[in-house]
Amino acid sequence: MQITDTPLKVALVIGSNRHGRFGPVVADWLLDRLRAHDDLLPEVVDVAETDLPMSFAPTADTATARAEVTPKLAAADAFVVLTPEYNHSYPAGLKNLIDWHYTEWQAKPVAFVSYGGVSGGLRAVEHLRQVFAELHAVTVRDTVSFHNAGGSFDDTGQPKDPSGPEAAAKGMLDQLVWWGRGLKEAREKRPYGT
């Protein structure tokens, strides 16, 4: 089987852990797009279900929490990070998840889907690009963003005007596949950092 025949394992990272968060609505819509893309095999990593401590002092609880999430991140060929925007940036829980890991992100592509008020979470995405560059990940250019997200979805969890988000998701996921395949092939030929 050639590398192009195998679906890429993509981790969908849901970045909010606030009570009453809107993220699961966007995540469900996004999962439908990921599952419909023949080149992708998604798995969810939800910050709200990841009990990583805020302190980096190693404990038994830390080892347990890492044992649950780290293998999912390590196995992923690519990532889609779903983030809201809090105070012109991304949530602390997402930063904590990112910072507890290092090699899991290296030489892999990261795409972003954001939501928020007027900015649609784009300021959070720009901050995340800097963080992932430091972790040696490659961020794809195109994003999907939902401005005034609460009013953008209907009662069934679908965008009220799907044409824009559908087109943006297709372009973003196509780029993610291109980068994912290229970087996976490169890592298999020569492990990153050697």
Rank of each mutant, 00 (worst) to 15 (best):
M1V: 15
I3H: 14
T4V: 13
L12N: 10
G15Q: 02
N17H: 06
N17F: 01
H19C: 02
V25T: 15
V26T: 09
V26S: 06
L31S: 08
R35T: 14
A36I: 06
D38G: 08
V45W: 06
E49W: 04
E49V: 01
D51A: 11
P53A: 04
M54I: 12
S55E: 12
S55D: 12
S55W: 09
A57L: 11
D61N: 12
A63H: 12
V69D: 09
A75P: 00
V80Q: 06
T83R: 01
Y86S: 01
Y90N: 02
P91E: 00
A92W: 00
L94T: 03
K108F: 07
S114I: 02
V118A: 14
S119K: 11
G120N: 06
G121R: 03
G121F: 02
L122C: 03
Q130H: 13
V131G: 08
T143S: 09
F146C: 09
F146A: 07
N148Y: 11
N148P: 00
G151Y: 00
G157K: 03
G157E: 06
Q158D: 11
D161E: 14
E166K: 07
E166W: 06
K170D: 07
V177Q: 13
G180I: 01
G182F: 03
L183R: 05
R187P: 10
R187L: 10
E188T: 05
K189R: 15
Y192N: 00
T194C: 07
T194H: 09
